[in-house]
Design a protein around this nucleic acid. Structure first.
Lengths: 240, 240
DNA sequence: ATCCTGCGTTGACCCTGATCAAACCTTGCA
DNA sequence: TGCAAGGTTTGATCAGGGTCAACGCAGGAT
């Protein structure tokens, strides 16, 4: 069966896009990709930009193309907790809900591929495969959230920091995961963000990092760049 | 258009079932319900029974018909954290994964409607509406998990206890939610479970409950039965 | 160059919640 | 009826991590 050349072409926007390979767009046929790409636009946001406010109407969804987005919740007296981090090529948004119950903020400079809400919802109706991918991502996020519940509820400060560094290493320097035993990466979060993620204070985060450095489990350059010469030793501190 | 009486009949098993009204089975046509019901069976488990072990092959899914199921994770040294509670008519199971990465245990006596794994997966393929319901439940569970991350990471012991009691009240005595200002219910969890849920120790849970009782915000009968004369006062302690 | 300003580190002290220990119910069962 | 076994409460003490405060450092603006 011959395919029309026109519908077979992958949109320029998508050709090299990670979301098409490992993200939700991989669910779509060239034809559908064209339809969706027509309504989408690339979007750049500097570190600190608010992408979606709490109690704000949800106008669009997006794929994270690069950088890190943090999802936060804040109590009325200002205490804050990061409840999720999104890396490329995660899908950003919460289908089936009119307004957000959390904040999404660029933790680093980020680039996004944004879609109008209606376009995604229409596409979800017509493509069960897309919906399934979104479902799978939601389940993965749920697994992650539950892992962090253990960390938040039951681990000590130093175990929390070690767990956090491992998680970042796995996301930023994926090659390091299993085979190699060393890893190096830039922290995408400030000390304040790390504290908000782990339910600690800035001071405790700083002290624990200093301790890991003193114990020669990591080295720190310019406050942000971390080198882990032996991942196994870091894992031993994560207390799983 | 006349429907065949045979395929139109709702299985006896399902007639009064809550899962058909508010749960995932509501997605199914009478015909599909019949097909699924043929493979399902009711299952009773006493408090404390392990329903699904960590790293165990997933053989079946289930709807919770009554009682409470706790989902737990355990660190290698025995520290435990409850990462989710399921009430009727929640769907119990994690599609798209061969084996579980958590434990499911009956927190109270429970009754379940269990389905062989293959039956649910076949039905999911043929009914986008079912998959959508499952997707929605996963998103709801994700929202809940994130709410608890805030509680675990940023709230004090007394705020944790107040938040927990509110959550239970809303699930066990739903009428109490908004309109009425009083609520009464039996705690489905032991002090040890509450501690594992909130990232506290048994002693702290006990002390905080005693404090709420001393402050006349709750009354406790037989250790398990809680009466909240004024939900607003309890909410004020939850620190949202 | 100098001053800011935003991050990050370090120190001193304190408090919340953990730990250890003992006693106190309930409930089931012999 | 009495006993055993969980589950729960209460008390005394301790320590992990929070709070408050000062200082250091780097990069950008003037």
């Amino acid at each position: 069966m011959r395919k029309d050349v026109h519908t077979d072409a992958i949109p320029v926007l998508c050709v090299a896009c990670e979301a098409r390979h490992k993200g939700v767009c991989g669910a779509l046929e060239a034809e559908q990709l064209v339809a969706l790409a027509r309504t989408s636009h690339k979007q750049y946001a500097g570190s600190g930009t608010e992408l979606l406010g709490d109690a704000q109407k949800i106008g669009s969804y997006a794929n994270v193309l690069s950088g890190v987005v943090k999802l936060t919740k804040t109590l009325s007296d200002g205490r804050q907790q990061i409840v999720g981090l999104q890396f490329a090529p995660d899908f950003l948004g919460r289908p089936f809900r009119e307004e957000s119950d959390l904040n999404a903020e660029a933790a680093t400079d980020v680039s996004l591929c944004a879609f109008p809400r209606a376009a995604v919802e229409r596409m979800m109706q017509s493509s069960p495969e897309l919906e399934r991918r979104l479902y799978r991502q939601a389940l993965d996020e749920l697994d992650e959230a539950r892992d962090w519940m253990v960390t938040l509820g039951r681990k000590t400060a130093s175990e929390k920091i070690a767990s956090f560094l491992l998680m970042i290493a796995r996301n930023i320097d994926p090659a390091a995961d299993a085979d190699r035993q060393a890893a190096a990466f830039d922290l995408p979060l400030t000390r304040a963000d790390i504290a908000d993620f782990l339910g600690l204070t800035i001071e405790t985060v700083s002290r624990q990092l200093t301790r890991l450095r003193a114990d020669k489990i990591i080295t720190i350059e310019n406050n942000r760049h971390i080198v882990v010469p032996d991942l196994a030793r870091l894992e031993a501190r994560a207390g799983n």
